[in-house]
Nucleic acid binder design. Structure first.
Length: 283
DNA sequence: AGCAACGCCTGATAGC
DNA sequence: TGCTATCAGGCGTTGC
């Protein structure tokens, strides 16, 4: 989510007031709705008004009450740049604007684009089912407690479930669980009130830090101007298998949880509640 | 209903 | 060098 929020913050300023002259679609399947011809015809002449984020979806509000929705998935990029530069490989959709161009580039081809009426966002699968925004007023510690109660699956799997909390990806679940000193395999319903509170704080901390550092760039991620973020340098556990835990020095471990790589400290994140949870972390 | 496994893609890297 | 296996920021579908 911090990566998506960063893209939105750049593009909100860059695209405002620009008019779409024409659209090239090089990979039709990247366009989830509608078909290429309808997409091109409907977008011609539209003007960008405002950009929003909901979960990991980018929503561009256009004139005539239309909304251009983009999900970058794993490797997608949405970049505004001058016309005439060489087109990067894996560029699937290209918008020619009244000034400059907007390109959707995606090596793994998982990302998708939709064009729907602004009041029919439910036409985008996933978007309509999103849970609470973790940095919004609707997210309280009781919200998190409610999401965990009665769920026997792992806390990491629950945090990754976008229908409960809209935003947390693999990096930020690991970082939040590390800070809260909770093992990723702990059944969600077994978290104590104290752990739930620590996790509630940790989720907001890691997301705010991620945004403040303009996202995490490991491979493909760049913001709306094509620049990398810097949060990868501040990650405590993600991608650091074998490195020393910043808190206790124990090597960071990696296991598989919910089909994803999960990085954690075996000492700081025991499979039962940590007795040292009330102690402040070092550094 | 809840949950885990798989599929979708290309490319980088590790191990043999 | 060149092969194979594994891994990658996510989510929709399938089947148990």
């Amino acid at each position: 989510m911090p990566e998506v929020e960063t893209v939105v913050r750049y593009l909100r300023v860059a695209l405002k007031g620009l008019r779409i002259k024409s659209v090239d679609v090089y990979l039709p399947k990247a366009l989830a709705f509608p078909d290429t011809a309808s997409f091109q015809a409907a977008l011609s002449g539209k003007v960008f008004l405002e950009l929003k984020r909901r979960g990991k979806y980018i929503i561009a509000c256009l004139t005539d009450a239309m909304a251009l929705v983009v999900h970058l998935r794993m490797s997608g990029q949405l970049v505004y740049e001058p016309e005439g530069e060489p087109l990067p490989k894996h560029t699937h959709i290209l918008w020619h604007l009244s000034r400059g161009r907007l390109r959707f580039t995606d090596l793994r081809q998982f990302g998708r684009v939709w064009l729907v009426p602004a009041d029919r966002l439910e036409l985008v699968p996933g978007l309509r089912d999103l849970g609470v925004e973790p940095l919004g007023k609707g997210f309280q510690v009781e919200t998190l407690a409610g999401a965990l109660s009665g769920r026997r699956k792992s806390i990491k799997a629950v945090l990754l479930d976008q229908t409960l909390i809209a935003a947390l990806g693999n990096i930020y679940t690991d970082e939040a669980l590390y800070r809260a000193q909770i093992h990723p395999l702990r059944p969600a319903a077994t978290l104590t009130a104290r752990e739930t509170d620590a996790l509630y704080q940790a989720i907001q901390e890691v997301l705010r830090e991620g945004i403040a550092h303009r996202g995490t760039s490991i491979r493909d991620y760049v913001n709306g101007t094509g620049q990398a973020g810097s949060y990868q340098n501040l990650l405590r556990v993600y991608g650091r298998e074998g490195e020393a835990c910043p808190r206790c020095g124990q090597p960071i471990a990696r296991i598989k949880v919910a089909g994803r790589g999960a990085y954690f400290c075996p000492r700081c994140q025991p499979t039962t509640e940590s007795p040292s949870l009330s102690l402040p972390p070092e550094g």
